[in-house]
Amino acid sequence: MNKKYTYVWVSLIVLIFGIIVIPRIVDRLSSGSVVENDRLNSDSKDTSEEKLGYILLDGKRRRVPSFEFINQDSVLVSDKDYLGKVYVVDFFFTRCPSICPVMTTNLVNVQKHFKDAKDFAIASFSITPDFDTPQVLSAYGEKYGINDANWNLMTGNHEGIYELANAGFNIFAAEMADSPGGFEHSGLFALVDKEGFLRSRIDEFGNPIVYYRGAILEEKGVNDHGETEEIGILKVDIQKLLEE
């Protein structure tokens, strides 16, 4: 084909494109539809990934089981007292020579961070209830600077506490003679929302992380095994639940 006619056809096609297509693009830009549908994936942000997930059991959202124990002030405390509050749960014992001091220090850190949040609380359960009387728990609280009225250090029925730890929260606790202090337990924290459901952030594979590492100091960052502290992300996630 003659070059002259080729140029004419190309020019005609460009003209038709400008008349038909460009006005449509302009209309979509002005309406915002290009922003929603045409941007690259790397530019779009899926806000659903920022929401905390629910912990499921048999396809149902897992709720904190009922409990009722005595706190450091000899006051009876139950799960119902925590409804309407976002709270962190841990299992510890006052004579623990290993991870408990770190866990409590981290929780005191969290306590200070949310000192003005009236709907934030902490629930700590002793796995040596026979020794950890309300008086012992009160002294432990004074030692570590536990001064939030919404932080209960609880003691009570031995079987009830172990049932709550191992079956209720799936946070391991057991008597083991070879372990430091004679007991073995997990250094994990559980996070509960205002309705009593267990919550956590979603990992890169779309699954909830379930628990937060509590036995690594936030200021330390990483432990000797290369595991990263999770108090920083716990604070972020507590705030998300407080704002729900």
Results as ranks from 00 to 15, higher is better:
192 V>R: 13
215 A>E: 11
221 G>N: 06
189 F>T: 03
206 G>N: 09
197 F>N: 14
198 L>Q: 01
198 L>P: 00
192 V>T: 04
214 G>K: 07
217 L>Y: 04
219 E>H: 05
213 R>W: 10
215 A>L: 04
190 A>N: 13
195 E>G: 00
233 I>V: 15
215 A>I: 01
191 L>S: 10
198 L>V: 00
232 G>D: 10
225 H>E: 10
205 F>L: 14
215 A>P: 00
217 L>C: 07
191 L>T: 08
218 E>K: 13
214 G>L: 12
220 K>H: 05
224 D>W: 00
196 G>W: 12
225 H>Y: 06
226 G>Q: 04
233 I>N: 10
223 N>D: 15
217 L>V: 05
227 E>R: 11
194 K>A: 03
222 V>E: 07
213 R>Q: 15
200 S>Q: 12
228 T>R: 13
220 K>E: 12
226 G>S: 06
206 G>M: 06
204 E>V: 02
207 N>S: 10
231 I>M: 02
214 G>Y: 05
194 K>R: 13
199 R>A: 06
213 R>S: 08
188 L>V: 06
191 L>C: 15
218 E>Q: 11
201 R>S: 11
225 H>V: 02
227 E>K: 14
221 G>I: 05
200 S>E: 08
228 T>S: 08
233 I>Y: 12
189 F>S: 10
233 I>G: 03
218 E>I: 08
195 E>R: 08
190 A>R: 15
208 P>S: 05
193 D>W: 02
198 L>S: 00
225 H>I: 00
207 N>Q: 14
199 R>K: 15
190 A>S: 15
230 E>R: 09
225 H>F: 09
210 V>W: 02
230 E>D: 03
213 R>E: 11
224 D>G: 00
203 D>N: 15
215 A>D: 14
228 T>P: 07
193 D>F: 09
217 L>R: 12
227 E>S: 04
210 V>Y: 04
224 D>A: 04
220 K>G: 02
192 V>H: 09
208 P>E: 11
201 R>D: 06
220 K>T: 03
217 L>G: 01
207 N>W: 03
230 E>F: 06
226 G>H: 06
195 E>D: 13
191 L>R: 05
201 R>M: 11
224 D>L: 06
227 E>H: 12
210 V>I: 02
197 F>T: 01
201 R>P: 00
203 D>C: 09
209 I>W: 12
198 L>I: 02
230 E>S: 02
194 K>T: 09
201 R>H: 13
207 N>V: 10
208 P>M: 13
227 E>I: 05
